[in-house]
Write a protein that binds this DNA or RNA. Structure first.
Lengths: 236, 236
DNA sequence: ACAAAAGTGTTCACTATACACCCATGC
DNA sequence: GCATGGGTGTATAGTGAACACTTTTGT
């Protein structure tokens, strides 16, 4: 077997999403080293000897957020290996999507990197490397996953109310949903959420029933996000 | 920057699917070298210097099938890098899904590898490396893509009939579909298929209208595959 | 005329949406 | 009582499955 092939280092980059103040937010670090020193970037790091991709993603997540012992929802999104995407040499990166409930503060990582939550906007954010592209791909991935997987519950601390879950959908999809119909849909999907039997009182209003995640791994029927498909009367 | 990280070779493996005789089929080669010499495997090869992933996948596809100048539907599915998945050392592989219309014969590759179409069954096929897993992931990916992308048209040579397109869905999903309702659904999705205006006569029956792919990159409304969601009266 | 495949019309059940309305709490 | 948010009922429109039926060919 010829060994004329290129050799790579493999990194894992994390797109850590949460909902803060009703807005979708992503965890960014400020790069402390060249290249792109001082520029915001997705957290991540290199694969170690004997380590699998998912293990590396979980390790990096623990290191960057300081969380231990949690089993967050981690999903592989895509792999990027374009020549020149990293000025240091041939580095391929595997992007993982991680969903967390709102954390009080991202507890600046052990790597002395400055971590912060940044709102996810529609346009590019000037991230290092090709991270703008990776972020956009991952957010679109998350939007799709909300439709037919119980991913949205990963944004919520248990137990949660239906209104909190609705806030996740509204923040990630960027649309307003009818509270009444949403309630019925969510509670009507077998295995999506299970009532705990408890209630939670807010400062005002009727107390909301509390739920935890159910056993379903896929949502049927799916919660389809609204799309405008109306053909314009004058054509398109 | 410490260089204590593992280094990898990166391969691209292809899951080339087609529909033959109404059955979903995958292109397999017989390995000519160790490891797994003589075992069936997915076609693939190593990334070359200066080459991006998609370019490598397209190159390998051309080499294995002998096709030139075509632009097949190639989509990245997932990346696998478990330690020990390749006995030769640390090799990560990026799996690509390629969809082709039925070819007369896979024109054994230039690599002197014996290529053949194998029907895709429900169980493992004893493929080399972790290719059973990769194949299963890619087939599930294809099943999902048929729902909301025009991927199915990539299985058909243009121009095609609605019945041919239906055959693709039936083969990939493994279900029977109502020809009448399928016809209406497909022709009702804006931008999915466009009539050429021509007809094709079969040995018997009314000639079918011919279509080509339309400009749509996503299908709305989607063609959802049938799922059994009926809660059994006695529980499941 | 008949068989076979393409394509249309119609019915019926189910799902989505909009929104009126009632419920349960704090003040 | 009143404001506020939680949750249910219900009317209406739209969508999907089932299937009768018509169209267009070859023999």
């Amino acid at each position: 077997m010829s060994r004329a092939h290129a050799t790579f280092e493999i990194a894992v980059d994390l797109v850590v999403l949460t909902v803060r103040d009703g807005r979708l937010a992503v965890l960014l670090i400020e790069r402390g080293n060249e290249p792109f020193r001082g520029r915001p970037a997705l957290p991540g790091g290199f694969l170690r000897a004997g380590e699998d991709l998912l293990d590396a993603a979980a390790r990096e997540l623990a290191e960057e957020t300081g969380l231990r012992g949690i089993t967050p929802d981690l999903r592989q999104v895509a792999t990027y290996a374009a020549p020149g995407r990293d000025p240091r040499g041939r580095v391929a990166t595997v992007a993982y999507l991680a969903i967390l409930p709102d954390l009080p503060v991202p507890t600046a990582g052990t790597d002395a990197a400055i971590a912060r939550w940044a709102p996810v906007g529609p346009g590019p954010d000037g991230l290092a490397f090709d991270h703008d592209r990776i972020l956009a791909d991952a957010v679109e991935h998350a939007r799709r996953l909300l439709e037919d997987t119980p991913l949205a519950t990963a944004f919520c601390r248990e137990p949660f109310t239906v209104a909190e879950l609705r806030g996740v959908y509204e923040a990630v999809w960027g649309v307003a949903l009818d509270p009444r119909n949403f309630h019925r849909k969510v509670t009507g999907v077998p295995g999506y959420v299970e009532p705990t039997g408890d209630l939670r009182s807010l400062p005002t209003g009727r107390p909301a029933a509390l739920f935890r995640r159910g056993p379903a791994e896929a949502l049927y029927p799916p919660l389809q996000r609204p799309r405008r498909s109306l053909p314009a009367p004058q054509g398109d």
